[in-house]
Design a protein around this nucleic acid. Sequence first.
DNA 1: CGGACTATAATTAGATC
DNA 2: TGATCTAATTATAGTCC
Lengths: 221, 221
Amino acid sequence: MVAAARRRPSLGRQKIEIRRIESEEARQVCFSKRRAGLFKKASELSILCSADVAAVVFSPAGKAYSFGHPSVELLLERFEAPEGQVHVQGEGVGGEGQSVVAELNRQYGDLRAMLEAEKARREEVEEAMDKERGARSQVLAWVEAEVGGMEKEELMAFGAALSVVQHGVATHADQMLRDAMVLGRMSRAVPQGLENYYFHLLQTGQGHTAGAGAGAGDRLF
Amino acid sequence: MVAAARRRPSLGRQKIEIRRIESEEARQVCFSKRRAGLFKKASELSILCSADVAAVVFSPAGKAYSFGHPSVELLLERFEAPEGQVHVQGEGVGGEGQSVVAELNRQYGDLRAMLEAEKARREEVEEAMDKERGARSQVLAWVEAEVGGMEKEELMAFGAALSVVQHGVATHADQMLRDAMVLGRMSRAVPQGLENYYFHLLQTGQGHTAGAGAGAGDRLF
DNA sequence: CGGACTATAATTAGATC
DNA sequence: TGATCTAATTATAGTCC
């Protein structure tokens, strides 16, 4: 401490947003630290609560790291065990949606745990989202209007379908646009300002059957 | 202030040793809290570092919870493949996974992979379900979170797809639900938000298990 | 990449409703 | 069983080795 002004050793931990870290280096450092932290948490959980826990992590580079008690393989096997798979026996078209809903509810049961976790993150995201405007708010407004008139049953189906849609969008945005065009006669309610893009990108398209993925939810969805 | 000495509201967090919690009740509470925390950490890791992460937890009662990005099953498949991976098993009950973690961190050879191209990473997304408001707001909340992280291009596709979905739902809500159940085996495409915290509920032993979820075929729409 | 360090952001044990 | 609250324990972002 010779110099008069001693440089502060560190600013201490800084708050960061939960979004991809752009800096290659920082991302790598963070990966190492958090991976270790995750495994530690997993370990503590298994010990404190006598629970079996397995965690697998693939680094961006492709390396695989894992933690498992009793062993990853064993747990994964148990997890994949088809013994629990639900078999929607002959989707007896005769049944009414209601029974399906009931079945769904039963299946998801404790899925509520997930909502719990999501809630936490949602709050953070919500904040950052306030700044966003533009096309986003348009889509939202549109959805809000549409959803507003749906019945529970429809809402569940909608939610399920959204799950699938979202994934497709994130993965193949362009292709999605084309497919969507072909499949739907999107002549109807389309967020303003977005319709132009549809036509703009429309070219070819082979229709696909829409499949919905169930979202999640204790009793809805 | 009635009494002279006001009892302190709480002693605050207490330090605990990492060993099986004897109290049945305390153990259950701890399990819930830490399970949520673990999944959150897993989610953050996957987002911050664009890493693929999967975690499976079996409660002492036998229920299985899981988190996976992109999906547990997809990652498990990859994990099974004999690549240059390193895994460790924690001893959980009775052991201290701590040292194991340290060892794991050290274990890394120098294998690079080709998985890098596969990450269709996304940004932050979270969904919160306000049970108080009903399914409607849940769907909205999800969409809200989803849309917030999309790029313009994705947004366009999303908007396009939405109109199609909306139409389909309004017309065949029941059927869509059914399709969702049959098609979705809750594996591949668990969309963000629902995807990030995509928990799977299993019941070792009896009853049926959950398996549903999102995941239409390889392509959706 | 794994450690070490500092100061601060997050998590969560314990008790309550 | 879940949500809250308080206070203390942990996890870590940033930086250097």
